[in-house]
């Protein structure tokens, strides 16, 4: 892998400048949705769950069980947004990538820059959302670093995957909404987010196994309140996320370069 960080940073700088234009939407979208889930499910459904199982889930109140999953979901969803929209815009809408490619930048550097800027947004979303969880008493102060790190990591890895996926989109007809309805939402619902994955019938559990959100949630629960997780499981989850992100980035760089030299 060639070292091209400074040039990628300049692409990220442009992306951040563009993102700043959308700051209101980014904050509303990044926090509004998860907070709605936190209040309606975490507190509403949580009251019901806690009343019926006094020992809690994993031995903790429902809200504490839910919090690491919501945090990882927020990270993944903001990465989804911040990689797919700019990539479609760059290739199809205002075609800024064509203009960038006429400079000394390479396609690979443009891809890296998009992911770098998305990382900034993921970190922002995760940190602020962790603070909200903390205010609601869903996480302990001591979980700040490990939880933010693991969620951010999951978001970046998902971003790498989406980078490669979006780089191939030739016609945006419905791509964004298909991703949301058929990938992001099912992942959110079937990754052991709202209940342990083991309560699902075995025929549906595979959705969790391939879901980066489930892997991030498992790691998050382990780091947050010490949910049982064998070291090998932690390793597998970490490796799975890494492979998804690194594979996506490497493929995405090649796809960007190829598409911009056609």
């Amino acid at each position: 892998m060639s070292i091209s960080a400074p040039a990628s940073l300049r692409v990220a700088e442009y992306r951040l400048r563009n993102m700043w234009r959308w700051r209101g939407g980014i904050i509303a979208f990044g926090l509004g949705n998860p907070i709605l889930y936190l209040v309606s499910i975490g507190i509403g459904v949580g009251a019901l769950v806690d009343a019926n199982s006094p020992s809690g889930i994993d031995g903790v109140p429902y809200l504490v069980f839910l919090a690491p999953a919501l945090l990882a979901a927020a990270a993944i969803q903001s990465a989804q947004d911040e990689v797919s929209f700019p990539t479609l815009a760059g290739f199809l809408w205002n075609k800024v990538f064509i203009g960038m490619r006429a400079t000394s930048l390479t396609g690979g550097q443009i891809a890296e820059g998009v992911l770098l800027a998305a990382t900034v947004r993921v970190v922002f979303t995760t940190v602020v959302y962790w603070l909200v969880l903390w205010v609601f008493g869903a996480v302990d102060a001591g979980t700040a670093l490990p939880l933010v790190l693991v969620s951010t990591f999951a978001g970046i890895c998902w971003g790498g995957f989406v980078l490669a996926l979006t780089a191939r989109v030739k016609d945006d007809g419905g791509y964004i909404s298909i991703m949301w309805r058929l990938v992001i939402m099912p992942m959110f619902l079937f990754s052991g987010t709202f209940y342990p994955l083991s309560t699902l019938p075995l025929a549906l559990q595979w959705i969790g196994w391939i879901s980066p959100l489930w892997h991030a949630t498992e790691l998050g629960r382990w780091l947050s309140y010490g949910a049982p997780l064998a070291p090998w499981q932690a390793l597998v989850s970490f490796a799975y996320l890494t492979a998804l992100g690194l594979g996506g980035l490497l493929l995405g760089r090649r796809l960007f370069e190829g598409r911009l030299t056609q």
């Binding site: 400074p6 040039a7 300049r10 692409v11 700088e13 442009y14 400048r17 563009n18 234009r21 205002n94 075609k95 800024v96 990538f97 064509i98 203009g99 960038m100 400079t103 000394s104 930048l105």
Partner: peptide
Amino acid sequence: DTLDTELTVRENLLTYGRYFG
């Protein structure tokens, strides 16, 4: 044109110049 229509005239020139380092 491949300009970023969401940014200002000056910002377009600035970001483009930055691409060249």
